[in-house]
Design a protein around this nucleic acid. Structure first.
Lengths: 177, 177
DNA sequence: GGGCGCATGTAATGAGTTACATGATTGA
DNA sequence: TCAATCATGTAACTCATTACATGCGCCC
């Protein structure tokens, strides 16, 4: 993708907005707590932080505690605050336009022998239900906010997809070849 | 993404499987009929076709009719048939694992003044409903197959998302700041 | 002393995007 | 004659990924 989504940028700015941090810390947090929602990788995060610093959206100071490795501690700047607000508004206002994913295969479903198609979709259904169970097991913190909201949305979406897929598989399995 | 999804590859092989074609023709078809499901761009398509040819999954012959520009007409090879079947099975069996998209913004919803958040999400809801209407307006061809199936899935998915979003906006609008 | 955690990065690779180049034909 | 369509590509760029490099401290 080009400069369409900016998901990673919002993520980093958002985290830095809540608290100044160094790269390792940010990455750690994402891996531990946001692995389901975010796909930002370590090397990408470091590079993006550097780009954001160059752009003036965050500032960096080198901090060394004792003999530990020196850290680049990043802090969001006023320019970054603005950027964050702009990106967030845009991100919230816009629904990921096009191709959702996983649809291309469906278009060619009839190019596979019926039985095989049913088998494949059944497998998909199972992994879908597994994912759903995982999201449903995520503990929530009372009224839906922050991450909880994103989890909720994921659940609703997965549930709808699972239901549709189940009925599609059923229809497919009982129809003539 | 790396070599994870292969959506574009399935798409091209699938189209060539139905009929030998030249690049312009394929691209034209995608733009006209599949713009909703596929995001494959012209230059990318040409490049991918060349890569598929190098890999031996398709073969090319140059054809010239009259004085029109010469065309590279591509035909799927046995190797390509196999590849297509493999990719298709995988594509059908697997649900796009991770981050669905649009979720990162939600995580930071509380970093925006309540009113603004509601406004943004309302805008999102409207465009979502607009999209939904467009998909619902796509004519179907009897029993769900091929593209129809993908459209159906899109509708189900959009509907679920729209419903969830509507109730979320309502809850948000009526809660204290 | 050997492996893990901390902390930051580089290098190579690859896929995708936009914008542009080219040149003939067709139709208003 | 001017614009659009046909047809294939190249070039420059951005973003992301994986794998690797480095080096110290801590703990068993």
């Amino acid at each position: 993708m080009g400069a369409v989504a900016h998901d990673n940028e919002v993520l980093l700015l958002g985290l830095l907005r809540q608290q100044s941090q160094h790269g390792y810390q940010i990455n750690d947090f994402i891996e531990r707590n946001l692995s389901r929602m975010a796909s930002l990788k370590k090397a990408t995060a470091y590079a993006l932080l550097e780009r954001l610093r160059e752009a003036g959206h965050i500032s960096a100071v080198t901090v060394q505690e004792g003999n530990r490795p020196p850290r680049q501690v990043y802090t969001i700047t006023p320019s970054g605050q603005e950027r964050f607000a702009t990106l967030l508004r845009h991100n919230l206002s816009t629904h990921a336009a096009a191709p959702a994913g996983g649809d291309i295969g469906l278009m060619f479903l009839d190019q596979l022998p019926r039985q095989e198609a049913v088998a494949c979709l059944s497998e998909r259904l199972e992994s879908l239900q597994q994912q759903l169970r995982e999201y449903e097991a995520v503990p929530t913190h009372g009224p839906a906010f922050g991450v909880d909201l994103a989890v909720q949305r994921m659940i609703v979406s997965l549930r709808a997809e699972a239901e549709w897929l189940a009925s599609t598989v059923a229809a497919l399995a009982s129809s003539p070849d």
